[in-house]
Nucleic acid binder design. Structure first.
Lengths: 184, 184, 184, 184
DNA sequence: GATGAATGAGCCTTCATTCAT
DNA sequence: GATGAATGAAGGCTCATTCAT
């Protein structure tokens, strides 16, 4: 792939991630292309349809998920509770709440492609280990299934309407704290 | 035919409430009409545009909100903790998570009409009193602002994709429990 | 026909004539019914479809046409030129320009009904006689065919947009004068 | 593909001009697109809404208006009367009667855009000069305001229904002659 | 490879017309 | 006879997707 092509792909991906988070995955793809500074046909060259784009964003997010997990693992011994909370907030900042439902909504119909399934499984396994550790450290009252834990996280991090955010600016962080506390 | 008309209106309202909850407030109005078993023009006769329909659903939901609150107030003295939890679950079942964001999204643009504002304010006041009681009973650690409390409730009760629900059937109830526990 | 029914019919007819002249024959029939102060179904009871209503208005206008002609005939001997001009203005005030095109547009496709054809023929004959008289009196340079004369009158009396009317309030009367003068 | 696009734009414009003249500016845009041999979305790409299309047609017509005026100016000295009549007929052929009312009807609501206003003003000025000349040549009895002159021309050149045109094929030319003669 | 243009499908909304009370 | 309600058929407009340059 040419260097400029790669740059375009990256720009589209980044724009998609931003706009998906801000306006939902139903945002017009033309808006994504414009935000990325490329023509609509260029977007389609890299991502044949909306699902492909969502999928790519999902991979992108999953990478960050792994980074957050890694960070948590590294910081764990120094201060489990802080690491655990940072983990929650880090996950929250990834807006899982946006991409997870979209994945369910659009991709599971036709079976999620194997690579995604695998990357997800790997992340699940690592989170499961974290939950286990947290349980041993007394940070969660029971070993919640990962999928349930993630679903909760997703629920808690979906964007709320402007109006509400206006009144409660740090709502998401607060909600994550409440969520984690509720798990104890 | 007044009776028929009323029945149709109710059918549309009910269909809208269901489909809004399942597919979001952007669901095609034709789908709502079909689900209600009426023609599209009948829907428009009763609700001149989407916002009017959303508004009507909001009122409908608010009525149920008041009922849930009343129930909680009545049961409070017998067992505060049980009443409080029932309150949370009752609210959860109303799918506030669907209608609240929609209200923010669409109706605040053109100022929500006074009656709604008032009905909402009334509900807020009653919930505020409940929170106060809960605080006194040691069920919440601090007197959270109602709007924040509700926003959290909304976040926690928005529908998740089929896939997730398949794995964790009682997710919403579980999340509400976690939420309420986290507030302690 | 009941008295109230007759009154309703008359009200609809009158409203139609007004609104046709003001907004064209494509005006929503509901608007006509409302203007007439009756329900839409009442309008339809009296006039099964738009064409029937247009037709009825046409008859109504034709009656006035006959009155204008009669007036002209009566005043002729006293002052032919004044009578001729009054005739033109009288016709102009009837807004033939609104109803004539509509008749052509909508009714001729399926042959205009006999009664209309006849009433029109009668009016045509009388106007033809007037033209003959006017020719003898030197008020027109040649014996224009009636249909042509009327078409010209219709063209000249169709309503113009507000903007223009604002600048030239008496445009129609002026145009009729020009038209009649041009015929000399 | 710039060339194709331009051709399409021209085709739409031409189709619009034809259909506006034949069926009025309320003609379905789909019909215009079909007549132009393009998809409906292509029409919308070039003209974002009906007003934009009407506006473009208006500009198009105005260009022809200027051409007619120029022609008249050039031919004036050779034979003023012939030039004046040719001017009237040339204007008549442009179907001002269709586009002028539409401009009044639709565009004045949201202020006609400056360029149009200017092109129109320029045409008005030139016609005013022609009227002045015609007055000096004894071709009009008084210096009619341009707007009034044009309104009359518009009134006289609006299309009449098929039926009438069937009976009097050259009605418009005849009417223009009568109009010009009436102005003497 | 990148781009803008073209296209049809789909949703919103209005309106003529028919029904049921 | 009068009425308001119901309905489907357009027509306006947007957007995902495909083409041609």
């Amino acid at each position: 792939m040419r260097a400029d092509a790669r740059a375009n792909r990256a720009a589209v991906l980044s724009a998609a991630r931003t706009l998906f988070a801000e306006r939902g995955v139903e945002v017009p793809l033309r808006a994504v292309a414009t935000e990325a500074g490329v023509g609509i046909a260029t977007l389609y060259r890299h991502f044949p349809d909306r699902d492909a784009l969502i999928l790519a964003v999902a991979f992108d997010v999953l990478e960050d998920v792994h980074a957050v997990i890694t960070r948590c693992e590294e910081d764990w011994d120094a201060d489990p509770e802080a690491a655990w909370r940072a983990f929650g907030r880090g996950m929250g900042r990834l807006r899982l709440g946006v991409i997870v439902p979209a994945l369910g909504h659009r991709l599971d119909v036709e079976r999620p492609p194997e690579p995604l399934r695998q990357a997800r499984a790997e992340a699940f396994a690592r989170v499961e280990r974290l939950i286990e550790q947290a349980w041993q450290a007394g940070l969660v009252r029971e070993k919640v299934p990962v999928i349930q834990f993630n679903a909760g996280l997703a629920a808690v991090t979906r964007p709320l309407p402007e109006e509400v955010r206006g009144f409660v600016p740090d709502l998401t962080d607060w909600l994550i704290d409440v969520y984690l506390r509720g798990l104890r």
